[in-house]
Simulated assay, not measured.
Amino acid sequence: MIVPFILYNLVIAGLAGFSGGDPWSSQILSVTMLSGGVWRMDLGEALILAGLVFMFFEILKSTRTSNASVIDHLLSTFVFVAFLVEFLVVSGAATSVFFLLMVMAAVDLMAGFSVSIRSAGRDVSIG
């Protein structure tokens, strides 16, 4: 989840080449459907899509049980805290795109802990 966080900050810092306006509403894809309707994707929607893909892999990583999983949980906690602090403090992060990315980081954090606790309960053998 750190990748969407970094990409978002690059865009709001102006390193991605946007000048003025809302960079998240810039259209990056437009497809005419068979029905005649036009489906378009904005930059913000693409970043949310990337966040969902990264969250999927993060949840897959949380299913393994090893010593590295503790470090993964710790890093997920730091990423969520960074999202939360930036959302509350930085005016450029007060957008729906950033909020949804922050919620994905929270779901990743909770899912990681839940999966680990559930799998740890199955590893315990008595007798």
Results as ranks from 00 to 15, higher is better:
L47A: 02
L47K: 01
L49D: 04
G51H: 01
V53F: 11
V53D: 03
F54N: 04
F54G: 00
M55T: 15
M55N: 10
M55P: 00
F56S: 14
F56H: 05
F57T: 07
F57L: 12
I59Y: 09
I59N: 07
K61V: 00
S62M: 06
T63Q: 10
T63E: 07
T63V: 09
R64L: 13
R64M: 09
T65P: 03
S66G: 15
N67R: 08
N67T: 13
A68L: 11
S69E: 06
V70W: 15
I71K: 10
I71Q: 11
D72F: 06
H73C: 10
L74N: 08
L74W: 13
L75E: 05
L75G: 05
S76C: 05
S76V: 03
T77E: 02
T77I: 10
F78G: 12
V79S: 05
V79T: 12
V81G: 00
V81N: 05
V81I: 15
L84Q: 03
E86N: 11
E86L: 07
F87Q: 01
L88N: 11
L88E: 12
V89W: 07
V89D: 08
V90T: 10
V90Y: 06
V90N: 08
S91K: 10
G92Q: 12
A93V: 01
A94N: 15
A94H: 12
T95V: 09
T95W: 01
T95R: 07
S96I: 06
S96Y: 02
S96N: 13
V97I: 15
V97Q: 03
V97D: 02
F98H: 02
F98N: 01
F98C: 00
L100A: 05
L100D: 01
L101A: 06
L101D: 03
L101G: 04
M102C: 08
V103K: 03
V103W: 05
M104K: 03
M104T: 09
M104F: 15
A105P: 00
A105Y: 04
A105V: 00
A106C: 05
A106G: 10
A106Q: 04
V107E: 04
V107Q: 04
D108C: 00
M110P: 03
M110R: 11
A111G: 09
G112P: 05
G112K: 02
G112A: 08
F113H: 15
S114C: 05
S119Y: 05
A120L: 09
G121S: 14
G121E: 09
R122F: 07
R122H: 15
V124T: 07
S125T: 07
S125I: 11
I126A: 13
G127S: 07
